[in-house]
Amino acid sequence: MKSVDKHGKIIRAATKVFAKKGFFNARISDIAKEAKVADGTIYLYFNNKFDILISVFEQEIGRLVDQMTTLLAKEDDPRRMLEIFITKHLTEMKKNRNLAEVIQIELRQTNKLIRDYRNNKFSEYVNIVSSIIKKGQEENVFRKDILPGIAKRAIFGALDEIARIWNLNLETEYTVEETAKQVTDIFQLGILAPGEKKPEG
């Protein structure tokens, strides 16, 4: 009989193994060993290694989507919402370095596989940024000429690079709060509509 707990255990083990060895070098047996289950047990829950990778994204990124949505629901100012997204994302990436590593490496190494997988949680997660940009434009807080699709990738790209540096243990003298404020200011001052002021804080 399948166990929800064992499924989660395998996902956590896979996240760690993918982060350490990379998707292509990781073996099912490595994941089984890390999860402390038999190799055959993996196939009770997953069809193959790619299925596990997608499940890592679905579960871990799905958790971030839920947490981010809850946080943003408490705020109405698009400027503060963008700051909240940036701060929360950086906090999570610093706290869960295995997940950060999986996001960074696998989005590049397995990009064709990811492209072939539609409606994934990662797209939903990044689209939170474009929805904030659109809200700001509708309220005349952000410039109307900014393309939300470009803005979300530029912002996420900056956050991804910062997380990558953290994973390499470089430039770690800055706190999450300091880093989040710098990134927020850089983007906000570029996308704010004329006459708008950045949020106090």
Score class of each variant (00 low, 15 high):
I10L: 03
Q182W: 15
R63C: 00
F85M: 07
E139S: 13
P148F: 04
A38Y: 11
R79N: 06
K198I: 11
R164C: 04
I155K: 05
G190Q: 13
K6D: 12
I52N: 00
E173M: 12
N48H: 07
L99G: 00
I52K: 00
R108W: 11
K121L: 07
Q104P: 06
H89F: 10
V183E: 09
Q59M: 07
Q109E: 14
L192D: 12
T179W: 07
I132T: 05
I132N: 04
L147N: 15
E161G: 11
Y43C: 04
F18T: 01
T179N: 05
A13Y: 01
V102P: 00
D116P: 01
S123R: 14
A14W: 05
L53R: 01
D77H: 09
K21Y: 09
G195E: 06
N169H: 09
M93S: 05
E92H: 09
K16P: 00
N120F: 11
G149I: 11
K135R: 14
L170R: 13
R63D: 00
N127H: 15
Q104V: 15
D116N: 14
L107T: 14
E34I: 03
E124D: 13
T175V: 08
T91F: 01
E58Y: 01
F23G: 00
E92Q: 12
G62N: 01
R12P: 02
P199M: 08
K88R: 14
D185P: 07
G149C: 06
T87A: 10
E196M: 15
D116Q: 12
E161Q: 12
L192W: 11
F50L: 06
K121W: 05
D77G: 09
E60L: 10
K134I: 15
G62P: 02
Y125D: 09
I186Y: 14
I11L: 11
M93C: 05
R80D: 12
L170A: 11
S131I: 12
F18V: 00
N111V: 05
G62K: 02
K49Q: 02
R118W: 12
A163P: 00
E75C: 09
K94H: 10
T184E: 12
R97L: 00
N25A: 08
S3Q: 10
G190D: 10
E83P: 04
D39P: 14
I28Y: 07
G40N: 11
G62E: 01
Y125P: 09
I150C: 09
L44P: 03
Q109G: 05
L159W: 06
H89L: 06
F122G: 03
K49P: 01
K198R: 13
K16C: 01
L72G: 07
Q188F: 12
T91C: 02
D66H: 13
G8C: 02
V65S: 03
R164D: 08
R153L: 15
I155E: 02
I103N: 05
E83W: 12
Q137I: 05
L170I: 09
P148E: 07
E58T: 07
A154T: 12
I162M: 04
P194V: 05
I165T: 08
F122K: 02
E173L: 12
G8Y: 08
K152P: 04
T179C: 08
I61A: 02
N127E: 15
I155W: 03
P78H: 03
V129R: 09
N127G: 15
I84D: 05
E161V: 10
I54M: 08
I10D: 03
I155F: 02
